[in-house]
Design a protein around this nucleic acid. Structure first.
Lengths: 217, 217
DNA sequence: TTCATTGAGTGGTCAGACCACTTTGAAAAA
DNA sequence: TTTTTCAAAGTGGTCTGACCACTCAATGAA
């Protein structure tokens, strides 16, 4: 096998998908035994097992010692199909990182705005004051305060890493527009207006990414 | 191996996480070679490889023939670090894991319900049909379809890992109540009623987080 | 110094061997 | 006959050892 374009066990993952289709194996149905797959696919048993273990960790199949391997009780043909394609391509990651970071930010805003305890924290006024007095504020600082307030360290950590990766250069042009949107966001939070806060955030963020030329497909 | 509580390769996945943590292996860093792992963990090489293959399919590690095995660089979806640093399983952490998973789930629901393309996918009807015919459905299967539909692979991976990590038995409401809520959720999605979908979701699965440990600490 | 080569290290794959467990069917017992 | 017992076949779980293909760096020759 010189310069294997695709690793063997991935090949087998595909073969299995095909096999499931052509033989119309239903969710909960039984797959051929490992030894039979070895014969049919003409590969070693360990290779077959590597493919099966991956699928098992993904929750696509279940194995029962002494019985066999089964399709997880659900109609997954769709899942398998999607997985096979999502294993290959890898150019969309940037977009995913960006979107995922926004997921965490938006949810944090919702949580803060919704909680009467959190949306009354003095930090929001402080930020507004700072914006008034200094005429500028760093986006990251605002969001960080919001993320911290929710007290979810895991989400905070994820956000931090996502931000680090995204590492989009901050451009402080059109200061007035940005200040206006930040003010809207913070005000909405303190008044518990969840949807308004999200709208402001979206406008702010969307505006930012547009400025940064990050047009997303 | 009598009555293996957990399969060996899953054990190794855990060992690897520990190893990554204790040895502070950074994203992009190199893991011990397969043969070294065999010695250190006292298992067969094929078992080690089964664990590695599953992690590779998840995109957590990369292998390069002739070079070694590496933690996937974060510029390509590296939440390994997140999880490795989050091995600590104190109560707060588990709660964070739970909440964070819900963040991803809720946002996915929003995205799907909002998109006229996504909320018209035939899969929702299929799920409803299955629920009708079989009278039951697995929570995870429904959520997984939703997560996949959003086509955010990073979020999908995070969700998957969070799910594995949380690994909490779901003791839901009565079957009828649950079926009703699922139907509500799926119906709301197909009709593009975002807030209704979120409400159904919260009612369906959110009560658990409310019950365990009170609102936000 | 520069370049070519070789050998050690590493992942990829295969074959065969046991083990533990489940199912099944034939023999033994009733 | 019917019921019980249990041994064999089938299956996943794991280990061992053997090659192969590839990468890299040390070695040695030009």
């Amino acid at each position: 096998m010189t310069n294997p374009t695709t690793k063997m066990y991935l090949q087998i993952v595909r073969e299995l998908r095909l096999l499931i289709q052509t033989e119309n194996i239903r969710p909960g149905g039984k797959l051929p035994s490992e030894r039979e797959l070895v014969e049919r696919l003409q590969v070693g048993r360990s290779t077959v097992r590597e493919a099966l273990r991956s699928l098992e960790l993904l929750g696509l199949i279940e194995t029962k010692r002494g019985e066999g391997t089964f399709l997880t009780d659900f109609r997954k043909h769709k899942l398998v199909e999607i997985l096979s394609t999502f294993i290959i391509q890898d150019a969309k990651t940037m977009k995913d990182v960006h979107i995922t970071r926004e997921i965490h930010e938006k949810e944090a805003i919702r949580i803060v705005a919704e909680s009467t305890t959190l949306n009354q924290l003095p930090v929001w006024s402080s930020l507004l004051n700072q914006l008034q007095e200094e005429g500028t504020i760093v986006r990251e600082d605002v969001i960080r305060e919001i993320m911290i307030s929710t007290d979810n360290r895991l989400s905070l950590k994820m956000w931090f890493l996502l931000k680090q990766y995204g590492e989009e250069p901050y451009q402080g042009n059109s200061q007035e527009t940005e200040n206006e949107l930040i003010t809207q966001l913070l005000t909405a939070i303190t008044q518990g207006e969840i949807e308004q806060a999200i709208l402001s955030y979206t406008a702010w963020t969307g505006w930012l990414s547009r400025v940064q030329g990050g047009e997303i497909t």
